[in-house]
């Protein structure tokens, strides 16, 4: 192995913490939130690849490949939802989206929704 496993894990830990930071800071912006999740998943992939190199088995690489496929599925669905919501209402701001989730509550901001492109 070219560098000790510890150093790979430290790099992965830093990346993971940065991903968590991104999720926490940008929790109102869907796009940046997804980017934060991507960073976290990349950190996990790095750990898997490092572990696979350490043990000389390919299991970790297989897992990393599966993470990649899984996350591309998740991102495409998330972006489809964002586009759908954007057509109805002009925002990618999660906080602005929450108003619709309570049918009982008065919704001053839900005006565009009723006349949305349902027809």
């Amino acid at each position: 192995m070219i560098v000790p496993l510890t150093h790979v894990l430290i790099l992965a830990g830093i990346l993971f913490a940065l991903g968590v930071l991104c999720v926490l800071v940008w929790r109102s912006n869907v796009i940046m939130l997804l980017i934060g999740i991507e960073i976290m998943l990349n950190a996990a992939m790095l750990v898997f690849v490092g572990g696979a190199r350490h043990w000389g088995t390919a299991d970790g690489q297989v897992f990393a490949l599966m993470i990649m496929a899984m996350t591309s599925a998740e991102v495409s669905l998330a972006l489809a939802l964002v586009v759908h919501l954007h057509r109805k209402r002009d925002t990618v701001n999660v906080d602005a989206l929450t108003t619709g989730s309570r049918p009982g509550a008065p919704e001053p901001s839900a005006g565009p929704l009723e006349e949305g492109p349902e027809a």
């Binding site: 998330a78 919501l85 109805k88 989730s101």
Partner: peptide, 12 residues
């Protein structure tokens, strides 16, 4: 009204 937004929230 709430369903799609809830779906996105649940996904995140």
């Amino acid at each position: 009204a709430g369903s799609v937004e809830t779906g996105l929230k649940y996904l995140l």
